[in-house]
Amino acid sequence: MFSSRFRHGDETNVEIDMVPVMNMFLVLIPFLLISSSFLNLKAINTSIPVRSQSSSELTEEQSEVKLRLMVTLSEESIIVKPMSDELSLEELEKLDFEVAVQESDALFTNLTAKLSLLKKKYPNSDTMVLSPEDSVPYSSMVRVMDAARGVDPEEPLFAKVVISGILK
């Protein structure tokens, strides 16, 4: 029988030498500890308004319709007013919209949806001028920037953010 043939065989107790593996682990762990990052830090690129060349100096390539979103952020609402040198005031006024601020994420889903429609219509647009009111906390500014960037990191909606105070 197959089973009886092995029943009386030599039973050698083989022990794997784990000491080299332990040594390897002891070298690996300090190395990984040093090069570990427990602070998952990312960044959002922004700038402040600076003087630039006038629109008459723009080249032919830059003359396609390009919107600049003027976003006024208060504790109650987000007002979006697109600006462009190529569109008339009437055309621009039709693109204005306002979103009421709520605590839920629905606000930002709503904002992203409206901004993606604008982006679809004017694909060359990429700049947002964010003007928060004085009392608005930093975290709300970051949430609006996130919403303006959209959900696809490969194709952001309005990734260039300029932070500016409200012009009075």
């Binding site: 830090l41 990312k42 960044a43 690129n45 402040i48 600076v50």
Partner: peptide, 22 residues
């Protein structure tokens, strides 16, 4: 934030990276 970035801007620092947690 506005006062601080304006002071930085007056010294020539016009570009910022806002550090955030992923």
């Amino acid at each position: 934030i506005n006062q601080v970035i304006k002071a930085a801007g007056s010294a020539g620092f016009t570009n910022f990276q806002l550090a955030v947690m992923e």
